[in-house]
Amino acid sequence: MDDYLVSVVSNIGIISFVALSAYLLLLTGEISFGQQAFFAIGAYAAGIATAMWGWPLPLAIAWGAAAGAACAVTLGIPTLRLRGLQFAIATLAFAEMVRILFELWRYQIDIDGEPVGPNGTDGFRNIRYVFDHNIEAFDFMMLIYAVLAVTLGSFMLLERSRLGVIFRMIGEDATLASLQGIAVARYKVFAAGIAGALAAVGGGLYAHLTTYVEPRTFDVMLGVHSLAYGLIGGLGTALGPLLGVVIDVGLLESVRLFAGYRMIIFGGLVALLLIVRPRGLLDERLVHGIGRLFRNAKSGTTRTGRGPP
């Protein structure tokens, strides 16, 4: 597989985590412009764990996810009482606060005569786990997609579970869900925690893919994009945000014709879709329609007793 293709496909996989993270919050009716903060926390935490503490990658990613989840829950408890615009602004403010903290934070140790660790605006370089362990770019891409496949499978299960129904109920009408005896605040904090962990897993993988991170990597641009992926791809299924990422990173990135104009096209696409399909390409209606088609085809086959030859 071509190096460039591996690189683009790996990026699609990694950005999908932060897109799924924003999508989960959208399901519960919350718009977050701050998921990049947890992506950053995961990137720094996992990078520190492997590059400075010598932890193995799995443990480092898990530690990053735990740090992301803990910060998301800590943020969620006070902010999920806010609604709509106030919540969106609070998440954006938190993300900027995290970014600025990383700009100010210096924590370096000497490894083989070289300073290693976060160094303020210079960022955090030499996250060399992949190179120190001779992991090929293709193998790392496969790891990203294996983790993504597990995550996506879990989303599919979640959406069929009681928890998934509760998340969607809260997203549709939190007051009505509350009247039905659902502890809305508790479930929202729970969703925020999972979303934080997901973004942090993406961040941890990103830090090890690129070998460096710096605070400005995690500015509002990433947050806006992650939110837009769900809105473009659709909110009917977890495949929606992935479709959004593929359209942006995959299609627009791969087609050199759009180079330099990509952000304009992407912005236009978001605006157009919000007018034409406010719940995205794979919205609930389409997903249910496809599901019904499959069910009908299946039951029709069963009734007539005729299967494929």
Partner: peptide
């Protein structure tokens, strides 16, 4: 760096 994963220059 300001747009992670979004502007990839072919190697």
């Amino acid at each position: 760096p300001s747009m992670p994963g979004m502007h990839n220059v072919r190697r």
